[in-house]
Amino acid sequence: MSNKKNWPLWEVFVRSKNGLEHRHFGSLHAADAEMALENARDVYTRRNEGVSIWVVESKHITASNPEHNGELFEPAQDKVYRHPTFYDLPDDVKHM
């Protein structure tokens, strides 16, 4: 078959227990979303690693470009006033 379509790539996100966020676990191939979920369960939770799974086809993820890292992320570096340590308080002020 010449116009062969292979199973697309999916990204797998697993919540390891309630209270924690879903975390990127890896990827796999599957023909459809249902299969991607089943495969994710079989591949990434065989050791009891999860209580919830998200799958998303890799092509649907939009990623930032590392070449733009300067303009995207460096401007945040000098905004120290966003952090509590920026503010001077006398030592006797407790619980703040």
Binding site: H29, A30, N39, D42
Partner: peptide
């Protein structure tokens, strides 16, 4: 037929 299916059948 695929790695994923192989793992599932073994499960």
């Amino acid at each position: 037929p695929s790695l994923e299916t192989d793992i599932a059948c073994t499960n």
